[in-house]
Structures are given as structure tokens and as C-alpha cells.
């Protein structure tokens, strides 16, 4: 068996149960569990955005030995709700991504963000995240605001990305069928007894 890309050992925040797993290149693992159990908190901990206990290694290198900004470029975290900082779409990107691949028209590039729907902003956020070419994706309900056609586009794009870059992903969803369709493994978080 190859060495894991990301190893998570007993990682937990003040408001989440502990998580331990290993992710390999090309692998997609689903994370399920009731609302409020702390799935998003765990993602933030793995992305090093929240203080946490436990240990993480990327390519065998411990988290504390990697500069925070570099760690977060490699571990791409997509929150369930993204808060943009500029006015126009183009301000947030280094270069124009392939918008059409997620069903977004080119005209959106110069539009104010205020005029976009939640679903459009969600797809743009994924494209922005992938621009960093992260090794691991942490996707927190990335299709929650999308119709069936766009759900399929996003799923296919993520799978293609993982294959092309030999990256890995953790995917949070409240749709069990989606997780079964996409993931090699599903981890269900439960409240500790």
C-alpha cells in the first residue's frame, strides 16, 4: 500500500468528535452525521483554521512543520457558505477559470457578486479553490444549492480533478445517495456515548 497523502490522527475540536483516517491519492471519502455534530468544525481543524487536538501529516510531514499559508494552499477547504470580499467576480481570481465546465456563462466574469444566485456563487467558490491546485479537498456540502444538472457537473469535475492531480477529498453531504455514488468509504460521525 502506498503512503497516505493525508493522515489524520485523533483530530478533534472543542465542539466535535475525534476523527482518524488516512487519505490516498485519487481517493474520495464521505463524511456524514447529524447537523450540529461538528463536521464543519473538523474540516476547519484539518485546514488549520481552528485550534484542535490530535495530529496531521501531509506527505509524511507534520502540520506544525509546514507554514500555515502553505498548509492551507495544499489542504483546500470549501465552506458550506462562502463570503466573498470584493464586488466583482474577476477580483477574486488570479486568472479566468473554465467557467463553462460548471455550467457558468462567461458573462458572469464581470458581473457584481450581488447579482449572482447562491448556486452560482457556490460553483465559483469551487473554481476559486481549485485554482490553488490543492492536494486535498475538504468540501462542505458543495452541491447544497444546486439543481440536478449542476450537481452532476460538480461531482464529475471533482472526480476528474482528483484523477488528474492524484489528489484526495473529504466530502460532507446530507444526501446518502450522493455519498454512496461518489465515495469509496463513508464515515458517519456519532455523538460519543
Amino acid at each position: 500500500m502506498t503512503a497516505p497523502l493525508l493522515r489524520i490522527e485523533d483530530v478533534a475540536t472543542a465542539n466535535s468528535p475525534a476523527l482518524s483516517l488516512s487519505l490516498h491519492g485519487g481517493e474520495l471519502i464521505g463524511l456524514a452525521g447529524p447537523s450540529g455534530i461538528g463536521k464543519s468544525q473538523l474540516f476547519k481543524a484539518v485546514a488549520d483554521l481552528l485550534p484542535h487536538r490530535g495530529h496531521l501529516w501531509l506527505d509524511g510531514k507534520a502540520q506544525q512543520d509546514i507554514a500555515p499559508a502553505h498548509w492551507r494552499q495544499q489542504i483546500g477547504y470549501l465552506p458550506a457558505q462562502v463570503h466573498w470580499w470584493g464586488n466583482q467576480v474577476a477580483e477574486h481570481f488570479n486568472q479566468q477559470p473554465p467557467l463553462g465546465i460548471l455550467g457558468l456563462p462567461d458573462s458572469i466574469w464581470h458581473q457584481p457578486l450581488l447579482q449572482l444566485s447562491t448556486g452560482e456563487k457556490q460553483r465559483l467558490a469551487l473554481l476559486r479553490l481549485l485554482q490553488n491546485q490543492p492536494r486535498v479537498l475538504l468540501l462542505d456540502e458543495p452541491t447544497a444549492s444546486l439543481d440536478a444538472v449542476n450537481v452532476e457537473r460538480v461531482e464529475r469535475h471533482v472526480q476528474d480533478y482528483l484523477q488528474q492531480h492524484q489528489a484526495a477529498a473529504l466530502w460532507i453531504s446530507h444526501d446518502p445517495q450522493q455519498l454512496q455514488r461518489l465515495c469509496q468509504h463513508i464515515i458517519t460521525l456519532r455523538v460519543a456515548a
Partner: peptide
């Protein structure tokens, strides 16, 4: 007021 936005930018690999 803007903590969610600041966190998203950190998540994208920007420095503090």
C-alpha cells in the same frame, strides 16, 4: 463582522 470572509481568505492560502 467579517470573520467568515477573513476565514475564507485564510482557507485560500493567504497569510494573516
Amino acid at each position: 463582522q467579517q470573520q467568515a470572509q477573513l476565514e475564507w481568505r485564510l482557507a485560500l492560502g493567504m497569510t494573516a
